[in-house]
Simulated scan of single mutants.
Amino acid sequence: MFQNQTFTSRYFNGVSAVPEDGTVLVHGQTIQFSSADTNHKISLSQFTEFIRTHNGCKLVLLPDEIKESPILEIFCTKDESKLLEKIWIQNKKSQSHSSAFFYSIREMNPIVLGLLSLIVVSIIGFFYFKGLEVVTNFIPLSMDKSLGDSVQVKMETGFDACDSKATDRFFSEALKQIVPKDSKHQFNVSVIGSAVPNAFALSNGKIYFFSGLLNEAKSQEEVLGVLAHEIAHIEKRHHMRNLVKAGGTSLAISLVIGPGLGNMEFLETFTEIGSTILVLKFSRDFETEADITSLDYLKSKNISTDGLLSFFKRMEEMENGENESEGTEDVVSAKDESSTARKITDFLNTHPATKERMKTLESLIQKGKKGTIKKIVSDTTWKEVQSTCLDLKKSDSK
């Protein structure tokens, strides 16, 4: 405890930029500043902030929210500054229970405090994002349909459709086989003329297959596996869940940052995120869930599960440049090369075929029955399905 100890100091009154030079007399819990023109006697508890500096400390008198606060700067040793801060904290802790809690935290070791903060934030974050998952249960399925309908309009203005009687027959029969009986969604499949070997689903039950996937498929069971995967995305409401998660994350960030986003910038940011999520890249967790669910769909209808694994293995090889398909450029339509189509196809690279994913699929397929049904239409119909977009291109060139 300081007893009548004097330090060199200077006082900023909050009005003038020029400080008053003087001395500070510290007696117990009281500080008395004296200069040629000023004499202030202030209790340590009256200062709202204590800041240690390289040559002493600074004590801030008022919250710096409305106007510049008076500041008392004391020149002292590092140990004296620590002792003075300790006295100040003890004074602040005695003011209320909340102050006692806050200033007790301030006294903690910075490393320990950092670790505790990380643990607390992690726990809060875990339950926060778990809560966001629950939120989706209270959103009606009509919202999924509206979300998908809005995207579908944009999608179909950017691509050429290659639907035919053969594709309609194939996918109609496939949907009857794979879609769960208790499904509340209305499913429909369309083929898009594009060399990209991919497929994606919208939240309203609309599923798109790029012709490149059909052209390069080695069997019907591969396409059935991919279809089951896309159906799983819709049944598990991955679009809406990801949208809620993205919106919740944006909200959490804005709360942490504070009002720095501006009056309307948060709404603009949320809208931008929402519009992007409409044609989203699914997270790894959602992809894994879709894989597992799709295998359940196939096994329940005795449909072969080997096709899904076979398809993703070939996609992995293509990505690694080990198995580049020949002649795919002949399938690319002129419209597919347009800027709109290009942007969407680049963005829709939603199914990374990682080695970890392959191992998971292999492990799941080995468990239980694998299914024996590999075909749902005749070989003749299947050949028509694979050649539909090629026939369309030939007819357009005549």
Rank of each mutant, 00 (worst) to 15 (best):
A341C: 08
A341L: 07
A341G: 06
A341R: 09
A341V: 08
R342C: 11
R342P: 12
K343H: 10
K343F: 09
K343D: 15
K343M: 14
I344R: 08
I344V: 15
I344D: 11
I344M: 08
I344N: 09
I344G: 04
I344P: 07
T345E: 13
T345W: 14
F347M: 07
F347R: 00
F347L: 04
L348Y: 09
L348H: 11
N349M: 15
T350N: 01
T350F: 11
T350W: 05
T350G: 01
H351E: 06
P352W: 11
P352T: 08
P352H: 11
A353G: 05
A353D: 14
K355G: 12
E356H: 14
E356I: 12
E356F: 10
R357V: 15
R357I: 14
R357Y: 11
R357K: 04
M358N: 13
K359I: 13
K359G: 09
T360M: 06
L361M: 08
L361G: 04
L361W: 05
E362R: 09
S363R: 15
S363L: 09
L364W: 14
L364V: 13
L364R: 12
L364S: 12
I365K: 03
Q366T: 15
K367L: 15
G368P: 08
G368Y: 13
G368W: 12
G368M: 14
K369D: 08
K370V: 04
K370S: 09
G371P: 04
T372C: 02
T372M: 02
T372Q: 03
T372G: 01
I373H: 01
K374L: 05
K374S: 05
K374F: 07
K375E: 03
I376V: 00
I376H: 01
S378T: 01
S378L: 01
S378H: 02
D379H: 03
D379G: 02
D379F: 03
T380H: 00
T380P: 00
T381E: 05
T381R: 04
W382T: 01
W382Q: 00
K383R: 09
K383Q: 10
K383E: 04
E384T: 06
Q386F: 04
Q386N: 02
S387M: 10
T388V: 13
T388Q: 07
T388L: 13
T388P: 06
